[in-house]
Design a protein around this nucleic acid. Structure first.
Lengths: 257, 257
DNA sequence: ACCAATTTGTCCGTATGTATG
DNA sequence: TCATACATACGGACAAATTGG
């Protein structure tokens, strides 16, 4: 049939109706004509406007829901909404695991990202952030013998630090790696008794440096903190060139919120 | 109704059927029992297995499709697939725009990310990457008077650099910011005639530094390259503290592939 | 090149549970 | 308490596209 690679026209293809519905609604949100929190309308109403069946609308809604552009209110009605960072971050983390990135890639990237984060935090940190980190450390001291809880607080500490840096682009960039990196601290704390106190000590010194706006000290202690992780990881008998286990993909927040 | 904040039991809530379907299929993929490329089964078949209606299966499929976990083959059948990075990156970029991040945040983050990238690239760069970047520069020289094309090649150059760095976590972390940052170079090249040649010169010197594995030179030229962007941005009469325009959100890859 | 089977895309109607007033 | 509106899910139907003989 009409041999040869170059045809006059490309094959014409109709986008599916549900996709047109989804894109039309998304466009309204992206361009700002529909603001977050505004009601979208009921399924029948949308079906009437677009001239498609309600089932078709529903399929489009599912896609938008997954993308975070619409969400259901407590009354189950449809409201426009902005994609939340956390959802996207955990998706990225999952993708990294599925693509079998290694702990070395994770470590190197985390090192770069956290060093940049702490450098900005030294400059931009405010009182509220300092208080939140203070609180985080206090809570950590109370659960020194609970690796699970301790490691959650570790992740939180670094998230607070990122917020203190006052740069949402950086905050977002570091989060996917962070969600994979810090949970491994649990494994290290379990195997090495000196892990937990060293971690907490580093957090404390970083916080002190932030309060004094001492960039050099902050950088030094962040670096030592992360190098400590690396040493602990290796001393626990693990190899940096192993791929991150699939297990972590399952523990990350499920797709449906 | 039972006043007071603390009740004995939380309200029990059934997850929607379509979501259970989606999660069940996703779990198979995440855990590796279903590998990318494998056929999932037909809609009726899935409906039979899960004991739900075909419409319900379809709703679940739409969600998974959006997440990138399943895709339609050329025969329109369902196949398992792994979420692609590019899709997630452009989603992140869109989210950044919608959350109204400023050019300053974008610049600061890009500076940190690109400096880290080039540092790793100096160590890990291979012959293929060098050749690809060489080709990119040659193409750029041919389109010096076409700001749109030139800026696409600029984005590509930095993406190639990231690939050369051999760290997928870092590569992924920088991409969302990159998708917003480098397109602005077009605006700058349009207003400042010296913009394009300076950009190309920087790329050339960075490439030379990579080839020589000269970390200091690579870092120096990357920094100048980005500082140039900043100067150009300000000289074009723009303010770093403006939020990134919504316009960019629309030009980013649409959600449906 | 034609035909039959399969599968998707879309539509219709209906029943049920729940939230709101 | 009752009525209304809505989302959720089900079952059945048909056209169009694709596959395989």
């Amino acid at each position: 049939m009409a041999a040869g690679g170059s045809e006059r026209f490309e094959k014409i293809q109709m986008p599916a109706a549900y996709r047109l519905v989804a894109e039309a609604i998304e466009r309204e949100i992206v361009t700002g004509r529909l603001r977050a929190g505004e009601a979208i309308g009921t399924e029948v109403e949308l079906g009437r406007q677009f001239g498609v069946n309600r089932s078709t609308v529903r399929e489009g809604i599912r896609a938008l829901e997954e993308g975070g552009y619409v969400s259901r209110g407590p009354d189950r009605r449809l409201y426009a909404s902005l994609p939340r960072y956390s959802r996207l971050s955990s998706r990225m983390s999952r993708a990294m695991v599925l693509h079998e990135v290694t702990f070395r890639e994770l470590y190197d990237a985390t090192l770069a990202l956290e060093m940049a984060t702490v450098a900005h935090a030294v400059v931009n940190v405010g009182e509220e952030s300092l208080a939140a980190m203070e609180k985080n450390i206090a809570e950590s001291e109370a659960v020194m013998d609970d690796p699970v809880r301790l490691c959650e607080l570790d992740t939180d500490f670094h998230a607070l630090l990122a917020k203190a840096a006052g740069n949402r682009v950086l905050e977002l960039a570091r989060e996917p790696a962070s969600l994979l990196f810090f949970p491994t601290a649990e494994m290290i704390c379990r195997r090495l008794p000196e892990g937990a106190p060293r971690m907490l000590q580093a957090h404390r010194l970083i916080l002190d440096a932030l309060r004094a706006h001492d960039a050099a000290a902050a950088a030094t202690w962040m670096r030592r903190h992360l190098v400590d992780w690396r040493k602990g990881f290796e001393r626990a008998g693990r190899d940096l060139d192993e791929p991150v286990e699939r297990v972590y993909a399952r523990t990350l927040a499920p797709p449906g919120e």
